Amino acid sequence: MGAALHLAHVTELPTRKRKRKGGGGDGDGYDQLVARVYKDERMTSQARDLILMLAWLVQRDPDRFNGGELRSPWTRADTILGTYGTGARKGSRLADLIDSDRPRYEPDWSSEAWQSHRCAAPMIRRAGECGQNASDHSLRIDPDTGWQTPVWFCSRHKDFGHHTRQMLRATERPEPIPNAGGLMPSYLTASDGDAGWIRVYRRASEWKRSRWEPPKAYGLCADDWPTPGRDPIPQKARLRLVLGNGDLNEPHDRTPLESL
Rank of each mutant, 00 (worst) to 15 (best):
R93M: 12
R93T: 07
A95C: 14
A95N: 04
D96P: 04
D99V: 11
D101N: 03
P103S: 09
P103N: 07
E106S: 07
P107H: 07
W109G: 14
S111H: 08
E112K: 08
W114D: 12
W114S: 08
R118N: 04
R118D: 00
A120P: 05
A120K: 09
A121S: 10
A121T: 04
P122Q: 12
R125M: 01
R126Y: 03
A127S: 10
A127V: 14
A127M: 05
G128K: 02
E129I: 05
C130M: 06
G131K: 00
G131M: 10
Q132E: 15
Q132Y: 07
A134V: 07
S135L: 00
D136Q: 14
D136S: 15
H137S: 04
H137K: 09
I141L: 01
I141R: 02
I141D: 04
D142S: 11
P143T: 01
P143S: 09
W147V: 03
W147P: 04
T149E: 06
P150K: 07
W152M: 05
W152Y: 03
C154Y: 00
C154W: 02
C154E: 02
S155M: 08
R156M: 12
K158Y: 13
K158F: 11
D159I: 08
H162Y: 06
H162A: 08
H162I: 06
M167F: 12
M167V: 14
L168I: 00
T171V: 06
T171R: 12
R173Q: 15
P174H: 09
E175I: 08
P176H: 06
I177A: 12
I177Y: 11
N179W: 08
N179C: 11
G181E: 02
G182A: 09
M184W: 00
L188A: 03
T189I: 01
A190T: 03
A190S: 00
A190G: 01
S191D: 04
D192G: 13
A195Q: 09
G196H: 06
I198H: 03
V200M: 11
V200T: 04
V200S: 02
Y201S: 03
E206Q: 07
K208I: 00
R209G: 05
R209C: 06
S210M: 13
W212I: 08
P214Q: 14
K216L: 15
K216R: 15
G219K: 09
G219R: 10
L220A: 14
A222M: 13
D223T: 12
W225S: 09
G229H: 15
R230P: 11
R230E: 15
R230S: 15
